[in-house]
Write a protein that binds this DNA or RNA. Sequence first.
DNA 1: GAGTGGTCTAGACCACACA
DNA 2: GTGTGGTCTAGACCACTCG
Lengths: 248, 248
Amino acid sequence: MYNDLIPAFQIGGIVAAPKGNMSYRDIKKVVLDRIQNRIWGPDSLLPGEIELAEEFSSTRTTVNRALRELAEEGFLERKRKAGTRVLHSPARKAQFAIPLVRDEITDAGATYRYSLVKREVMPAPSWLTAKLALKPDREVLHLQCMHFADNEPFQLEKRWIIVESVPEVLEADFTASGPNDWLVQKVPFSNLELSFFATKADEDTAGFMDASVGDPIFATQRTTWLRGEPVTHAVLYFTPGYKMTTRL
Amino acid sequence: MYNDLIPAFQIGGIVAAPKGNMSYRDIKKVVLDRIQNRIWGPDSLLPGEIELAEEFSSTRTTVNRALRELAEEGFLERKRKAGTRVLHSPARKAQFAIPLVRDEITDAGATYRYSLVKREVMPAPSWLTAKLALKPDREVLHLQCMHFADNEPFQLEKRWIIVESVPEVLEADFTASGPNDWLVQKVPFSNLELSFFATKADEDTAGFMDASVGDPIFATQRTTWLRGEPVTHAVLYFTPGYKMTTRL
DNA sequence: GAGTGGTCTAGACCACACA
DNA sequence: GTGTGGTCTAGACCACTCG
């Protein structure tokens, strides 16, 4: 039954170490299989690295890498002196790439088109001042942009850029390409907060997207800081029916 | 300006390598800072590992670990023979933990309460048969559960479990604790697909949540396989206003 | 073919956490 | 104190991929 999983190391349904030397990948596979088959059940303590190195006729360095990666992936918990334990509920971690919209669209084989909807220099709205803990009366550049996939509306972007943090932004031309492109080029980012939520299309949004007022809209929100200073805040509204998916 | 970032290695605004030996963490910091300050700009080629090891008076092994991790984090691209390049657009990756609902609630300091709403053994609905590529006429256990935080509705869970894949599930008692707990205990998972999307509350959902019909609802969908066999499919509807957040 | 990263080895010292 | 993982070193061979 498990033969397709780890063919080489499978002996009568029990995971056995092969005779030859094993790579850290091999060791990961064997250890993971033992966890999944409850040979090392939840909360149980694994043998020490030295002992495992002997069993796998490998070195501690190699075993260490295997176990370290399994811990990073959320299967194990490692503590000095206490040893390595199997996590009770595998605290798996989902990983998402955060692509540029353009990449997301072209990677899907569609044609990308960009359009600047609105550009406005204004004092920071109070909610933004509060959210980013800005000093009062900061100036921001507010932009609204549409991103199209094969000429269908794909994403509406509402962005606020703190002028004080990147004064050059006032000179930038956003009619041909979006602020994200510019920011990626110009500002080395250092810190990011990312949120996902659902909202409903208001009249304005519905007008831009191919949507009716009240339609549920999947949206993400990104706030970026550079060395502690807030740089930009963006809300991205996706076309109705958009689904973000990942496998692991 | 950058002094608070890497105080020890900062000399007049230019990143310099210190005299003593550096850990792989130190090397990561220096390399990342050089990327962010465009000393090594987008698409540029980094020196080879040996050269860097000399600069940092370290070894290739240590430099290798630093660069490998920066590549995993989406800053660099590494190829044999071609060398190490700075990625043009930092393909940053967002990581989310995938906690059990209970943990999510108790970690937030709230009291968790569970309630089984519906339990039904039924033939697999056709959409599920199609989605999971089931053989025709499989039997599934369908469950609906509510998860409360401080007695406020937090999440509505609709789950389908393929009986053939885990026959014992028919004997399990889900009145006191949820199917997720049981599955985590019982079934070593091997493969997972995770989706996020927005939907709107129908009458049924609105009745369970503290919501009005038509309210936007943030939802996630999880499908789990065990060694290629579909085990369970779940859709989790969050209370209106729920926002999933991560920092990096 | 040749250069780069990928990985393994054998050994050492260190840092933390538990008793 | 003492045992475990965390990390570094110095050297070696291998594998991929570019020219």
